[in-house]
Design a protein around this nucleic acid. Structure first.
Length: 607
RNA sequence: GGCCCCAUCGUCUAGGUAGGCCUAGGACACCGGGUUUUCAACCCGGCAACAGGGGUUCGAAUCCCCUUGGGGCUACCA
């Protein structure tokens, strides 16, 4: 009788779901779907200090967005629950007791510092560190005594060191480990919670997990898990250790990257977030700059100058000066700026200071808030970043699946169903791969074309909701039209950006300075606008066809390219040089708004 | 440092488990050209790789070894 396959994804709720985790989840899900098995979501929340309250909800939301659903897990429940490890303490305790009684595990009372000393010593001797197992295991009363004395009490598993341990891995083949390499590892922490190794082994057994597909970073843990399974009389599931997804920097794609990047930015560039503080203390501004490390980047200098309404030479001059006195003023300003930043992101000045010093890690929402405040693009690491970036879940699933897996041949763009039917666990790649955002975009372009109309509409609605766009004002029919005329967009963000201007106040258009300079202020542009205005006013009916005929005729009459007449009109109605096709745009905007915007534009820029 | 894993165009990869069908295929990026009312999209063309060195073999991208390079683990995190 063939056993039903059971796979699982077991994230720890420490933050949003990142792409590496999503990929792991996807492969497990794909394999379960392919084989008609079941996919379990298990939350590994055995480290209280690292858990963040919203993380589990967010991880589940992200999985759902990707279309990865679970047959058992939080919100679904099933025969093997509960699915939060923090709610399974009694189960782990039972097995722990068994191990202790069978003398397969033992109590330890050292502090982490004491163990660290041993570790350092081993490193100094160029030796592999393994925990020195005592000859006689402490008994229950010793543990009680130690506890009474306030010593930490942990439990270690006594790894049998008689024979090498062979891991039979689907992607790597046979990997052999010397038993002496695997030290007695901790299975119960001092707070009474099991460690990952123990909880994972117990749960995989009890939940009937048949296949464990996980990152290569777990390969070294596997021999330990296997000996634990043997000691407990458990099965050993089939293992498949996938390659790791690395980031441009080289190392493993990590969620910590964002925090690091942010911290570096704040430290390297303190002035960037001094803006608010500076604005409130203009008279101290120049003095402050004397003592502050300002960036060498001239574009930033110009930006500040513009925002502060001062001449850029003031900043440039200040930037050229180095050091100087005024330390107390500087500190005062820094304090003010930290307060400003903290206020902006809903944190406290002391937290900001600690973050800068690397003492605390901010929650993702705070990191996002800070990044927005600083106008900083953080590396996209989390699944939500891609949702916010206007990517389709279909794109993400397809792209992630192809990182470290391939159906063979030339196939690349695939639907979810095609992915499932062609998925083959034996085709997992051994080597690491890089997450290439450029290629992701091209996948998105393809899926934008492939996804059916209704689905795309619903994706777009989700998107404008999450970024709280003015486009929210449109009804479904208008939304569909907008999507249609933005054909060729690379992301939902493209569509949204091109569509915004339809929903702004005609008497209050924001003009992009570059567009003004390049188009509106050009010789004759305003005159042409004037002519267009006249023709538009009389146009009846007001259709794309009529608009096109009119503009083309005008271009011909003036003996210029269509661009010469279309561009001024585009800037007049949108304030920018980029919009959907001009005929559609004008039609959608309507005669009244178009005329108003042309009038306002001429009024504003006539010399 | 120790242990483990990996190695085809800049990137993702096909081919490798049955060595000759590979003068190494596709996709993205890039470069050149075309289309064009903007941005995109689109069309055509081009550049570009078996890390190095030894073996085994009539024959190696494919098998073995070494070197080099990259990655992972080395927690009372998962």
């Amino acid at each position: 009788m063939s056993e039903k396959t059971v796979t699982r994804f077991a994230p720890s709720p420490t933050g949003y779901l990142h792409v590496g985790g999503a990929r792991t989840a996807l492969f497990n899900w794909l394999y379960a779907k392919k084989t008609g098995g079941i996919f379990i979501l298990r939350i590994e929340d055995t480290d209280l200090s690292r858990n963040t309250p919203t993380a589990m909800q967010q991880v589940m939301a992200d999985l759902k967005w990707l279309g990865i659903d679970w047959d058992e897990g939080p919100g679904v429940e099933g025969p093997n629950g509960p699915y939060l490890q923090s709610q399974r303490r009694d189960i782990y305790d039972k097995y722990l007791k068994q191990l202790l009684e069978e003398k397969k595990a033992y109590y330890c009372f050292d502090t982490p510092e004491e163990v660290q000393v041993l570790r350092d010593k081993a490193a100094a001797e160029k030796k592999n560190f393994t925990y020195p197992r005592p000859e006689n295991f402490p008994d229950e009363s010793d543990a009680e005594k130690a506890k009474a004395q306030g010593k930490p009490v942990t439990v270690r598993f006594a790894v049998p060191n008689d024979k090498p341990i062979v891991v039979n891995d689907i992607v790597r083949g046979e990997v052999t480990f010397a038993a002496s390499e695997i030290g007695d590892f901790v299975i119960q922490k001092r707070d009474g919670f099991p460690t990952y190794h123990f909880a994972c082994v117990v749960d995989d057994e009890l939940m009937g997990v048949t296949h464990v597909i996980r990152g290569q970073e777990h390969l070294m843990n596997t021999p330990g898990h296997q000996v634990l399974q043997a000691a407990l009389g458990f099965r050993t599931p089939v293992y498949a250790h996938m390659s790791v997804t690395v980031s441009e920097g080289g190392g493993k794609l990590s969620k910590r990257e964002r925090g690091k990047r942010l911290r570096r930015e704040i430290i390297d560039n303190p002035s960037a977030y001094l803006l608010d503080a500076i604005k409130t203390e203009p008279e101290q501004f120049e003095r402050f700059l004397d003592d502050n490390a300002t960036p060498k980047d001239s574009s930033l200098i110009n930006k500040w100058a513009e925002e502060l309404g001062v001449d850029s030479t003031i900043i440039a001059t200040a930037a050229a000066k180095n050091g100087g006195g005024n330390r107390s003023l500087r500190n005062e300003m820094i304090n003010k700026s930290e307060a400003a930043l903290a206020h902006k992101i809903g944190s406290t000045p002391s937290e900001v200071k600690k973050f800068k010093e690397g003492k605390v890690a901010f929650d993702e929402p705070i990191i996002i808030g800070e990044a927005e405040y600083l106008d900083l693009d953080l590396p996209e690491i989390n699944v939500v970043d891609f949702l916010r970036g206007g990517y389709l879940p279909e794109t993400m699933v397809n792209f992630l699946a192809l990182l470290g897996w391939s159906p063979g041949g030339d196939r690349e763009i695939m639907s979810r169903d095609e992915l499932i039917s062609s998925f083959d666990i034996s085709r997992l790649a051994k080597s690491n791969s890089l997450f290439d955002r450029k290629k992701l975009i091209s996948f998105n372009v393809e899926h934008l074309k492939l996804v059916d109309k209704e689905k795309l509409l619903s994706h777009f609605k989700d998107y404008i909701k999450i970024i709280d766009s003015p486009v929210l004002k449109a009804d479904d029919a208008l939304l569909s039209t907008l999507i249609k005329i933005c054909e060729g967009a690379r992301t939902l963000e493209d569509i949204e950006k091109k569509s915004r201007f339809f929903f702004s106040d005609s008497d209050n258009i924001e003009y992009d300075p570059k567009a003004v300079k390049k188009v509106l202020l050009k010789e004759g542009a305003l005159d042409i606008l004037h002519v267009i205005r006249g023709k538009l006013a009389d146009m009846e009916p007001f259709t794309e066809e009529a608009l096109e005929a009119m503009l083309r005729a005008l271009a011909e009459e003036k003996e210029v390219g269509l661009g010469k007449v279309a561009q001024p009109l585009r800037v007049a109605i949108s304030g920018t040089m980029v919009s959907p096709p001009i005929f559609d745009s004008v039609k959608i905007l309507g005669k009244e708004n178009t005329l108003a915007r042309i009038d306002n534009t001429i009024e504003k820029f006539k010399s």
